[in-house]
């Protein structure tokens, strides 16, 4: 998934959003180019596409007050959109997977393989897809980590490299066994243990006597 979002400053009346996941969702030309400011959120571009984007960025697109020049750049970005759409597998630099989608014990294994040099690879854990609040773990390029001790809930994970997201986010739900089931097995174990003690003590006393 790749997305690039362009927005005005506070007085913006319109915006452009490009979605590189396969389709251009919508775009609309800004009315006042001179006020245009750029905010980008880039997910999972491979090296070549990223450099092209940077070139387009540096070519004056965001600062230009020339509408024709802007349209030219816009077409260039649309071409990039289509290019990315034809190669979705290249969208993520790292492949992050979980050992299970639903865990009944609050533990599972996350594993990944990254095909780029990672300067500062982090595994981020969050409770929502927006990753506003995260628990970050510094990890290696190819590896795995066992997450344990989580309570009931939905958990999202993704990998970042030097602050840039390089994997799709994945979701694991934790749904612990019910306490009724746990209590039943506990009780069953206790009863079996008690019978065992009584059996051995009684048997021992009989054989001694």
């Amino acid at each position: 998934m790749f997305s690039a979002t362009y927005a005005h400053n506070e007085s913006a009346r319109t915006a452009l959003k490009l979605d590189f996941s396969g389709l251009v969702t919508y775009y609309q030309l800004p009315l006042s180019m001179s006020e245009l400011q750029l905010q980008t959120a880039i997910k999972g571009l491979n090296g070549s596409i990223k450099s092209l984007f940077h070139w387009a960025d540096a070519g004056g697109f965001i600062c230009s007050s020339n509408r024709a020049f802007f349209l030219q750049r816009l077409l260039w970005l649309l071409w990039l959109t289509l290019f990315a759409a034809t190669a979705p597998a290249r969208a993520a630099e790292a492949n992050l997977t979980a050992s299970t989608d639903v865990s009944n014990e609050g533990y599972f294994v996350l594993s990944w393989q990254s095909d780029t040099d990672a300067d500062e690879l982090l595994l981020q854990q969050a409770n929502s897809t927006d990753f506003n609040e995260t628990i970050d773990r510094s990890v290696s390029e190819a590896g795995a980590v066992t997450i344990t001790g989580l309570g009931d809930g939905d958990y999202y994970f993704r990998l970042t490299n030097s602050g840039q997201t390089i994997s799709e986010s994945i979701h694991v739900a934790v749904q612990h066994h019910s306490l009724a089931r746990a209590g039943s097995f506990f009780l069953l174990g206790l009863v079996l243990f008690s019978i065992l003690i009584i059996t051995i003590l009684t048997g021992n006393r009989r054989t001694v006597s």
Binding site: N104, G106, G149, L150, G151, R181, F185, F186, G189
Partner: peptide, 28 residues
């Protein structure tokens, strides 16, 4: 642990409750 792995300190951790006598009987 309380922040990142709360269930590890939870005495009502269902799987752990089931494990108690299971391990005892397994050892026996």
């Amino acid at each position: 642990l309380q922040t990142e792995r709360p269930m590890l300190l939870d005495l009502l951790f269902p799987a752990a409750i089931m494990f108690l006598f299971n391990n005892l009987l397994f050892g026996v």
